[in-house]
Amino acid sequence: MKFLVCISNVPDTTTKISFTPDNKEFNKAGVQFVINPWDEYALTRAIELKEANAGSTVTVLNVGEADTEPNIRKALAIGADDAIRVNAAPQDAFFVAEQIAAVAKDGGYDVILMGKESIDYNGFQVHGMVGELLGIPTVAPAMKLDMAGTTATLEREIEGGKEIVEVSTPFVASCQQPMCEPRIPNMRGIMTARTKPLKVVPPVGDPARTQVAEFALPPKKQGVKLIDAANAGELIKLLRNEAKVI
């Protein structure tokens, strides 16, 4: 079984977001980048399934410039076998999906996994675009993934419940909790990751279809109105008469 796991390079979850003075770009100064937390579920589950199915391989794919390589090496240290970096800044979801589809087609991968969405762009789009470009099924977002031969059984989250879906390889799934407990690299993994193959390939396909014109931060709150705990019931009156939300 050949697994392809797509990872995104994103600001750490504790990052305070700011932009360049013209509000056109994210201000990367002093920001720590990590593997997108949702992608960690995809990566760890692929490694678990590889360990359970002898002869399987896990390839990590990232669309990014050279500065993403530390996180690609981290994914190799966690247990992926090799990596591919498409040497381009990710322009939009469609651009990224085109790169993934091209790599997947060349490599003949059976299972293409990624996180539900990236925590920076929050598109939740790439899974479906890749599935459609390759003409294969997509399951999104998946909370559970089991494989028996070429058949996968997945739990797909729906609003208010879940669906049990069965698909045959090849397929795409976008992953989220509680699929597995994401792993962290151990010392042996870090040592072996240094010599694992990391191939750099040029981008392909059509230009992006969307473009960010401007970023903005949410409006600041006016300040908190404190209510005495002894008179907590007063809050309910304010919510009805002043805020008018209940």
Partner: peptide
């Protein structure tokens, strides 16, 4: 206008085509 950075910001996005 869409939410980005998981609720920490918004972005104005131009849709082409």
């Amino acid at each position: 206008k869409r939410g980005a950075f998981s609720g920490k910001a918004f972005s104005d996005v131009v849709l082409s085509g």
